[in-house]
Simulated scan of single mutants.
Amino acid sequence: MRNTQKSRKWHIQVPHAQTNVEDPLGYTKTIPVISSGSTASKDAQSGAGNQQLQEKKAWELAQSPFKTLLMTGFLMWMSGNQVNIFPIIITVMALINPFKALFSTNAVFKSFEEEGVAVTLPKLVYFGLNCVGVALAVYKCNNMGLLPQQSDWANTTPLEPQEFSVPIL
């Protein structure tokens, strides 16, 4: 054992704990007891606080598509309007993700409904922001030329059939 201590370059000896060390500012050794009325009022206050917290979480969840909307819009802007593999992948993902979110709206807010939180307005905000995401992706598809436009059909005339068939009676 002596040999291993000599082979170490650094060795620290910690002195025994001192008992005359003062407590830091703001530290108290006792736990303050706050008594305010009955336990029923405490339960009502904590229930109301929990309800407000759940409503706040529901609104945060309802506004979460806005963050993805900004990121997706930036990615689509950076990818350009060429018809290449990367812009198409980004545009397809921009279409698929809001549709998935639209179809799972009730599942997303199910836990809040079980708590008794009114989630009608957060659901509408969530639905609306996802619809904006779909509209942004459709606009990108239009700019890339992936959607049919009026100029695609401007100079076309209906073709006359070269053959026709008649049923035998």
Rank of each mutant, 00 (worst) to 15 (best):
K100N: 08
G73T: 09
D23K: 04
G128T: 07
S64N: 07
F109L: 02
F127L: 13
N142T: 09
A94W: 02
E113S: 02
Q162A: 05
V83S: 08
S151G: 08
A154V: 14
L147K: 09
P98S: 02
I88S: 10
K140F: 04
L124W: 03
K123Y: 00
N143Y: 01
P65V: 09
L70P: 12
L147H: 10
L136M: 11
E114D: 15
V125E: 10
P87Q: 00
P98Q: 03
V166L: 05
T105F: 02
L95M: 12
I88G: 09
E113Y: 00
M76W: 00
W153C: 10
N50Q: 06
S111Y: 04
N3C: 13
D43K: 01
A44W: 08
A58R: 03
L129V: 11
E55R: 12
P158Q: 01
L25P: 15
S38Q: 09
I96V: 10
V138H: 04
I31P: 15
H16I: 08
W77F: 11
V138I: 07
V138Y: 01
A62C: 06
V83Q: 07
E22G: 15
S79N: 02
A94N: 03
T30Q: 03
Y27V: 13
S151A: 07
D152L: 03
E22D: 15
T28N: 08
K29Y: 06
K29A: 14
S104L: 04
T39N: 02
V132Q: 14
Q63F: 01
L75D: 11
A48N: 14
K42L: 13
N142Q: 10
I85S: 09
S38N: 14
M144P: 14
A137Y: 00
P32A: 13
L95N: 05
V14H: 13
F86H: 15
